[in-house]
Amino acid sequence: MRAVGIGAALVATLVGVVVGFYALAATVLARVEVEGQPAGRDGVEIFVCTNGVHTDFVLPAVSRVMDWTTELRRGDFPGADPWTTHFSFGWGDRAFYLETRRWEDLRPGTVLSALFGGGPTVMHVYALYTPAGSPDCGALILREGQYRALVDYVRGSFRRDGGGAVRPLPGSGYGPTDLFYEAVGRYSPIDTCNEWTGKGLRAAGVTVGAWTPLEGGVMRWVR
């Protein structure tokens, strides 16, 4: 029994060391600047928003660069207001997203599966009104070329059918204004939902940290 106790203590110590190293690396590398283009005064306004754990892009529904209504069917968002101005896009682990609709639904098994399972991913899309002024969001002005690069990045994260259309998961939304779509890529402790956001910012030429697996590592650059 004593040997079992010692073994459990060693495992707990090892886990603590790994978690501590991960947190340290996430903190340090999120502060290592990957310099982008100088901020512009004219262009497309986008938002990066957080719920305290996860970050999303919030992009205009229609702009000169991209009309998202040509890819996202209005019928997918039956409760959306007619004055919807933006869509939010968040990428992540499919099981975690679909099985954790409220924080009280969170289960250890779901967390472990998301971290180590490398399972399929989804894109979560909300139809909404502009979040301008929200304390949960940071606003950025992107030049047209920057925004086009970000749009290409987000579009490339959707899994598509043979005709190039996005692949919705009917009935998967939390309510009538959101829906999940099949996505490409695998979730891992390295490629997290927040690192997906960080990669998008880097693709658009926005100054951001070298690795941003945690939401704070993203939001410190956009607020």
Rank of each mutant, 00 (worst) to 15 (best):
S134A: 08
V151L: 15
W68V: 06
F116M: 02
R74T: 06
A204Y: 09
V28K: 09
R74V: 04
P38F: 01
A25N: 03
R167Y: 03
M219H: 00
D93L: 07
G162A: 08
L24N: 02
L59S: 06
G162T: 04
M219V: 01
T70A: 12
T121P: 13
G90D: 15
A210S: 14
E33Q: 15
P78R: 08
V154F: 12
G205D: 06
W103E: 05
T55I: 02
V58Q: 06
R64S: 06
V28D: 02
W103M: 06
L142R: 12
I141H: 13
L214P: 01
L98A: 04
L98G: 01
G156V: 15
M1R: 15
L115E: 08
D105I: 04
G209H: 05
R148L: 13
G173M: 04
T197V: 14
V19K: 01
L140S: 10
G43P: 02
A9H: 05
R159T: 02
P38A: 00
R64E: 10
L29H: 07
N51Y: 00
T177G: 00
A80Q: 05
F57C: 06
T130M: 08
Q146F: 11
I6D: 07
E104T: 14
T50L: 02
P189I: 04
T110V: 14
T55N: 07
D93Y: 12
Y147K: 15
T121I: 10
T13K: 01
R94M: 11
R167T: 10
W91N: 09
